Simulated assay, not measured.
Amino acid sequence: MELSRRAALALAGAGVAWAATGCSWPGGDDDAATEEEGTGDVIAYGDDDELQRGALSRPEGGGPHPVVVLVHGGFWRPIYDRTLMDPLVASVTAQGWAAWNVDYRPSGPGGGWPTTFTDVGRAVDHLAVLADDHDLDLDRVAVVGHSAGGTLALWTALRSGLPADAPGAGPEVVPDGVVSLAGVVNLAAGSFEGLGDGAVDDLMGGNAGSEAGDRYGLASPIERLPLGRPTLLVHGVDDVVVPPTQSVAYRDRAVEAGDEVTLELVPDGDHFVVIDPESSAWAAVVAWLTERWA
């Protein structure tokens, strides 16, 4: 049934929380890769932490393959990991695209601003290292993030416009499109609203009115408009975890700033319908990418 499938998606990350249990990832140096059932080749994109890993899954046939970078949500909490996005991998590869499903350091010791953000930036940049050996097309890279991952997905597109001395500035790989699935695209509003029981403040090291306020100007997608990259926002109208007003307000301001933005509001959609591969919400993502990469 639809409801049970979404419930399973919601709970997936809590059941396989590698970082929270202290388990080691298989593999060794940056070039090491191991095969994990259902996830593809697990590859390190950094050597600062065991969470600097991603799972690369490639389609059948020759390339070069477009790449969909998947960035999981979970309010940047340590109990969640990339397994939340595993259900989307098969759909991505079925289109003839590669899936790069990444982990990153969450809020808490060793994470938060700027590390959580720069980890995802490094994961995207690492595609330049992987491209030749894995037949990847760096001109067709989309970053797709759910919930907290939506923040990080859009942030990868704004890196080109950051001040030269800002964390994450000077990207090696710039996505040609970004997708936010029920994303927290306005961090200051998320802080004010107390989303995720204070998750934004934990991520940023304070609220937007505190000494941490300047960080919001570098991290929050809505504060860095225009992004200069085509953007798709997908949000369930009945989402009570991240309100759809986040996406609606972002769309309005981004279009006013000159960005190409598409907003898909999902009738009767909750927070998890957007990562259900059998939903109309995910079908809208596939259609948008297909049109771009035709």
Rank of each mutant, 00 (worst) to 15 (best):
L9M: 05
V273S: 07
A249K: 11
G196S: 02
G62T: 13
S91V: 10
D137H: 05
W282V: 00
W113E: 07
D132W: 09
A12Q: 06
C23R: 15
D239S: 03
V234S: 04
A283Q: 11
R6T: 14
V273N: 03
N186C: 09
W282T: 03
A19C: 11
P106C: 12
D81P: 08
F272I: 05
Q52N: 04
S279V: 01
P244T: 11
V234F: 00
A169M: 00
D41V: 13
G196V: 10
L233Q: 02
L227D: 10
L218D: 01
T245R: 15
L70E: 04
T156R: 09
L3V: 13
L225C: 06
W97E: 03
A98R: 12
L130N: 08
G236A: 06
V16R: 08
L88N: 14
G196R: 02
M204S: 04
V141W: 05
D176F: 01
V141M: 12
A182W: 10
V248R: 14
A249P: 05
P226A: 00
G112W: 07
P230K: 04
L11Q: 13
Y45N: 01
G150L: 02
V92L: 07
G198I: 00
R159G: 01
G168Q: 00
G205L: 02
A254K: 09
W113H: 14
S91N: 11
S191H: 09
A90M: 00
D165A: 10
T116H: 08
G38F: 02
G46T: 13
H146R: 07
D49G: 05
V241R: 12
G236N: 07
S91P: 07
D132L: 12
E172A: 15
S107G: 13
G40P: 13
G40I: 12
S220E: 02
P64V: 06
P226V: 10
L70V: 03
V266H: 00
E35K: 15
L127Y: 03
D165F: 04
A55C: 02
D201I: 06
A19T: 06
W282E: 04
A189N: 01
W155L: 11
R215Q: 09
S160F: 11
A8W: 13
Q52Y: 10
D270W: 03
G213M: 07
T245Q: 14
G108H: 03
E37Q: 13
A123H: 03
G15Y: 13
G183I: 03
R253S: 10
D41C: 10
W100D: 01
P114Y: 10
E278R: 11
A283W: 06
G209C: 09
V261S: 11
V173P: 13
A142G: 08
R159E: 01
H146V: 13
T118W: 09
V129A: 14
A284L: 01
E172P: 01
V266N: 00
V68K: 04
A182Q: 06
T116A: 08
I43M: 00
S107A: 12
G74Y: 14
W288Q: 06
H72Y: 09
A189Y: 01
M85W: 02
A20N: 08
T83E: 13
E260R: 14
F75C: 12
R229F: 02
V71F: 05
H126P: 15
D165Q: 12
P66H: 01
L195Y: 12
R140C: 08
D133K: 09
